[in-house]
């Protein structure tokens, strides 16, 4: 849907010739669709930028949105979509800001009656469609990166590793464990073992609503990795129905210590370390 050089020039001419009227109507139509959620000044500035970058593109000859001449236009469009996405506008509200130009052009070109008018209008529409789609895509991209950022922040928030006692750390797991989160928990826990020099870790799953094979796999892998590093893990907070699922699924926890509550787990660890200190005392004696 590329414009020919003449068409591009005619579009630029049209936009330049009726500059004030175009911007006025364009701003009006967009303002109506956004129902006052963006200030007139802000809107006018955006329309102005779009308007002038379209003229620049048109004057430079053949206009295809992918061409080099349209670099500025693309930049303005992505800037517009990024802004709208961050301000919480919907994708259609954003795209309408571009599509509104069609209506403006129709009003302008109705008055004219040249040999090219109809052909021009179709060509211009094609370009505007392209611009709209481009806006839509950059809008979605911005949203996606926003969501990814938030997911990451959530991940950071939801996996605290706390020191319970000298040499004992605990991770209270809350909520559903998916693969990505389990991985973060695993790494965080193991790193804390190194940083604090703690030979014991308690993984408390009281807040985990369900345990499936995958979740169990992740927990098991963490325990094995911790052992490789020279630390022991205890799993606590296994609720009755989770114990039933574990057995029903045939998940083998092997020789991994499991305790009903965090308190039991801590007592278990303290007893273990107590035995060790006892032994050390005997040696010194």
């Amino acid at each position: 849907m590329a414009l020919s050089t003449e068409e591009g020039n005619r579009l630029a001419g049209l936009l330049t010739g009726h500059a004030e009227r175009v911007m006025q109507r364009w701003t009006e139509i967009v303002a109506a669709s956004l129902r006052g959620r963006l200030s007139q000044g802000e809107l006018r500035r955006q329309v102005q930028e779009l308007h002038s970058s379209m003229i620049t593109a048109g004057e430079q000859g053949a206009v295809d949105l992918d061409s080099e001449q349209a670099t500025e236009l693309r930049a303005v469009l992505s800037e517009l979509s990024r802004g709208r996405a961050r301000q919480g506008f919907s994708a259609s509200e954003t795209a309408v800001s571009v599509f509104a130009l069609k209506e403006v052009l129709l009003e302008l070109m109705e008055d004219e009656d040249g040999p090219h008018t109809l052909r021009d209008y179709v060509a211009f529409s094609g370009l505007i469609d392209q611009m709209g789609l481009f806006t839509f895509e950059s809008f979605v991209r911005t949203r996606e990166s926003l969501i990814a950022d938030q997911a990451e922040q959530l991940l950071e928030l939801s996996t605290p590793v706390v020191k319970l006692w000298e040499g004992v750390v605990a991770v209270p797991l809350v909520g559903t464990l998916d693969s990505a989160r389990a991985q973060v928990v695993m790494e965080r826990l193991l790193q804390t073992l190194v940083d604090t020099g703690s030979p014991y870790a308690i993984i408390d799953i009281t807040g985990v609503p369900a345990v499936d094979t995958q979740v169990a796999q992740h927990i098991l892998k963490t325990v094995v990795a911790a052992r490789l590093m020279g630390a022991d893990c205890i799993i606590s907070g296994i609720r009755p129905q989770i114990a039933q699922t574990i057995v029903a699924l045939g998940i083998e926890f092997g020789d991994i210590a499991t305790k009903a509550s965090l308190a039991d787990a801590l007592r278990h660890v303290l007893r273990l370390t107590g035995v060790e200190t006892g032994r050390r005392q005997r040696r010194e004696a």
Partner: peptide, 8 residues
């Protein structure tokens, strides 16, 4: 830790 995870 990264080595332990990889070994597992």
């Amino acid at each position: 830790p990264a080595v332990a995870i990889t070994l597992v």
